[in-house]
Amino acid sequence: MVKNKKVVVFMKGIPEEPRCGFSNAVVQILKMHGVHFDAHNVLESDELRNGVKDYSSWPTIPQVFINGEFVGGCDIIIQMHKNGDLIEELKKVGITSALLEKELNNQKNSKNH
């Protein structure tokens, strides 16, 4: 389940309608980077909710997996977003962050002028 897509999120609610501020923050950050991810709503199943916590040994939701590896919860994703690590982690699995693309385009454009 955590490997179905390069980026997999376990959250409360669905990306279009998160039911928790922490889950929402993670979704918004991934969207900003243009990442297509699988999302699983733990509110739909206690088994899923407890299962993912056991699997990652992490007590809270949301949880983000990249290439099947547990990366962190909301605080860590925000931190990685701020310090640029998220772009690097995405790059490692072959995803070019939309933010990086934008920056490269800007650089290109400024060279042309």
Binding site: K12, G13, P18, R19, C20, G21, F22, S23, N24, A25, L43, C74
Partner: peptide
């Protein structure tokens, strides 16, 4: 501050 609650608690 942490993000605003979106009502998921206990649901």
């Amino acid at each position: 501050p942490s993000p605003e609650c979106r009502g998921g608690f206990g649901k």
